[in-house]
Nucleic acid binder design. Structure first.
Lengths: 340, 340
DNA sequence: ATGAAAGCGCTAACAC
DNA sequence: GTGTTAGCGCTTTCAT
């Protein structure tokens, strides 16, 4: 079977190369009849245009890079799925690029990645969304990019955000409404700006409710199970321990549950726990963890919509899209128990 | 800044295009002096060859596709990492392609994927590694591919396997050595051939030990938490329940732990549980789950080594590489308790 | 509305 | 050892 190229199609349809190209790109100035003939030829020869040849002629690669450094596999998987969905629709391929955000050579690494693959655009997930040195690099080299869940909002850079602070505020209000006054907080990884947002929402709700936040109730976690465990041990060993713990993500919340279990503290009767992210583990612990679901897949999809439009220099109605989180009430919280 | 092309480099180095190309591809017949000059030009102009132009000339894309349908995010993440490691080393990019192996149009879907992206090769993970219709399709179209963890071994198709059956046999022996005789088994997803291998190893050890395997002790799971839960409920509700449960992966083992907890059955004192895969969850349950670690990342890396060699038509020393699993003894198993 | 010619950046085949 | 020529499959420019 001879490989179908644009020349073969042109010959088959009895038109010129250029006309085939016109049909391929939905350009105007082709008669309906000709269009039909050419499309029939596409079908008959099962023709697929070569991305390479196209790219060479137009200086595009039809490749989009996805950069991430996140231990949360559920999150990344959702990001990948959402991104791929739009890529397939729009005729792009996605090149994934996990990288270490704390490495010394991270900028060189990324510079290389971009140059070698000749990417048309880049998707930045936290913490890269807020890495100023990277953003500068991209701006200098005029590389298209979209930021997912950044904290810093620039006027002219496209991004998709969600309301972490607002929902954290609500989660805290929920705990307060259950009667909790001594609430422990386990912060997320300091490199991730969402950590700050989640903490801010917590503080805001506490201060509005007139509740003091003791320094010893605030612990620094790193978004992983082990750090949740360590922080929980410290919190629950206090002379006057909290009756509720707000963990900045589900892995850390699961760590809290483990510690409570070991210390024979019943969750939720004696201790309420909340997480964040709706990770798989939050459904698989017992009790299951009350948490916040982020529309991660949709965020990625929307982000790529923006990016592709920008690559194609189409008009952007919005340069910033905000999506809402959802509070998921499950089994890990209850009304504060009487003092025992 | 003017974009560096091969022409610019040639001019800068005072040689011809072709000589630059020779240096680029490490071809022989270039004097050391010239080589140096050209390499200096690369450096000075920070030249990166265009994959598109190269691809167009050589009919390659420098793109490798990774096909998977697996709910286990840890597994996929490891596969991706191992694959990417070799891709970067060898100058390829990886295009990930999650797909639904049970879908009607799966073959069309994959055919399209391959044709559109002009991939140089394909990596198949289970259950695609054993999907005969797909293999036929690839063979017909002369597409290079490597299979990860297939069950069917063909003479001429390259693959990387591990010894699931053997290690299952050992895990079962371990349970038997702890005094267990009534051992429940939760099978994996029937679409995945490893499910069968794990079960075979179990059966082999049981029959060698002269232990009967009651039909009611064998349950059909699907590799997910929920199915583990359902199967465990059935097993533990039996009049004469098993004293140990061998779950074919960690998610299902975690489901077993949940049920045991709800039924106030102590693991491991009253019930021993084993999993498979060393998924994150197996470290985060309490007790942690005794399991089997597969060298997934290395398998993917080795698989891509084979694939790239095949693409480059280099000599293959082996067309089949076997890697060993590791048994991880953790907290979920104990000597069988006295009858109570 | 359609086509001819040139060129994108690289490599293959063949000179010298 | 090195250079010349042609061409990969497509788009762009400019005729017609």
């Amino acid at each position: 079977v001879k490989k179908a190229t644009i020349n073969v199609v042109a010959e088959y349809a009895g038109v010129s190369k250029k006309t085939v190209s016109r049909v391929l790109n939905n350009e105007p100035n082709v008669s309906a009849k000709t269009t039909e003939k050419v499309k029939a030829a596409f079908e008959a020869l099962s023709y697929k245009p070569s991305p390479q040849a196209r790219g060479l002629a137009t200086n595009q690669s039809y490749l989009i890079g996805l950069i991430y450094d996140n231990p949360n596999k559920d999150y990344i998987s959702e990001i990948q799925t959402g991104a791929l969905n739009l890529c397939h629709q729009a005729g792009y391929n996605l090149i994934i690029h996990p990288a270490d955000c704390e490495s010394e050579e991270i900028l060189d690494n990324l510079r290389n990645f971009i140059a070698q693959s000749q990417l048309d655009g880049l998707v930045l997930t936290p913490p890269f969304s807020d890495m100023q040195s990277l953003l500068n690099l991209l701006d200098e080299h005029d590389i298209n990019y979209v930021r997912i869940a950044p904290t810093n909002l620039y006027s002219d850079s496209i991004c998709v955000t969600n309301n972490d602070q607002e929902i954290s505020y609500k989660v805290t209000q929920y705990l307060i409404s259950l009667g909790h006054q001594k609430i422990g907080f386990i912060k997320g990884h300091p490199q991730h700006n969402v950590s700050e947002q989640r903490f801010n929402g917590f503080q805001q709700a506490m201060s509005e409710a007139g509740l003091e936040v003791h320094g010893e109730f605030i612990k620094q976690g790193f978004f992983d199970f082990d750090s949740g465990e360590i922080c929980a041990k410290q919190l629950l060993a206090l002379r006057d321990p909290p009756t509720a713990i707000f963990a900045s993500n589900d892995y850390m919340a699961a760590g809290v549950l483990k510690v409570a279990n070991l210390m024979n503290i019943n969750v939720p009767k004696q201790l309420s726990v909340t997480g964040f992210d709706d990770a798989a583990i939050s459904r698989h612990t017992w009790p299951s963890i009350t948490t916040v679901q982020q529309p991660v897949r949709i965020m990625a999809y929307k982000a790529l919509e923006l990016l592709v439009k920008q690559i194609r220099k189409e008009h952007l109605e919005h340069t910033h899209i905000q999506l809402d989180n959802t509070f998921l009430e499950r089994e890990s919280c209850a009304v504060r128990a009487e003092i025992h």
